[in-house]
């Protein structure tokens, strides 16, 4: 995907809805399913993820002309790993509870398909500014969906949102929403919803 324009704001909106990384590209589902049972963890994950995506997109885009084709994948992964590690150490130093809750899924961002995918499909083929916009758009698109899913799953499955009780003390939680099947159910409905909206637009 190459952009002829120097600065193309459509790239930003693309990542948020039209080509949303979760609902459309269907990448990076692993951390999504695992973390979306808690709203506060999802917000943390979304912010960390967006930061890493933006940094890696910008750096990879700025060196794209110097990287020989045969070594591009190791180069991308090293660069992504640097930012993931910086994020991991920083969260560990200042927000240790979040690091504990995210567990292995924070380091796993190194091989997250959204980050690697955007590096390969966009950042390595477009200028720095558009790559920055793509990073912000895709990052916000991911954050939007993971937080939305968390609000639904935690709300219905636990009666709370970010730990605050919302349905009153006598609410009997619909437990399956907090467990893995609930994650797949909510995701399936969200994808179906987006597809139905897209279909209507076409007609």
């Amino acid at each position: 995907m190459k952009n002829k324009k120097l600065i193309d704001f459509k790239v930003f909106f693309n990542g948020i809805w039209k080509e949303n990384p979760i609902l459309f590209l269907m990448l990076g589902l692993c951390p999504l399913l695992a973390i979306s049972s808690s709203t506060s963890d999802s917000i943390g994950m979304g912010i960390a993820f967006t930061f890493i995506l933006i940094c890696s997109n910008v750096i990879i885009s700025s060196i794209r002309k110097f990287v020989p084709n045969q070594v591009r994948i190791p180069v991308f992964i090293v660069i992504i790993a640097v930012f993931v590690t910086i994020t991991d150490y920083t969260i560990g130093a200042y927000l240790p509870q979040l690091q504990k809750n995210l567990g292995v899924f924070l380091p796993l961002i190194v091989v997250n398909c959204i980050v690697l995918g955007r590096a390969e499909a966009f950042a390595s083929k477009n200028n720095i500014f558009n790559s920055l916009l793509d990073g912000i758009g895709m990052g916000l698109g991911f954050t939007f969906i993971i937080v939305l899913m968390a609000i639904i799953r935690e709300g219905i499955g636990n009666g709370t949102i970010a730990g605050k009780i919302i349905f009153g003390k006598n609410y009997k939680p619909f437990l399956i929403m907090i467990l893995p099947p609930g994650a797949f159910l909510v995701l399936g409905f969200l994808i179906a919803f987006k597809n139905s909206l897209d279909r209507r637009k076409k007609c």
Binding site: I63, V67, I86
Partner: peptide
């Protein structure tokens, strides 16, 4: 390829 990889990994390690 060797030069690029070497530069990037050493810079990353230092950072």
């Amino acid at each position: 390829g060797i030069i690029v990889l070497f530069l990037i990994t050493s810079l990353s390690g230092f950072l």
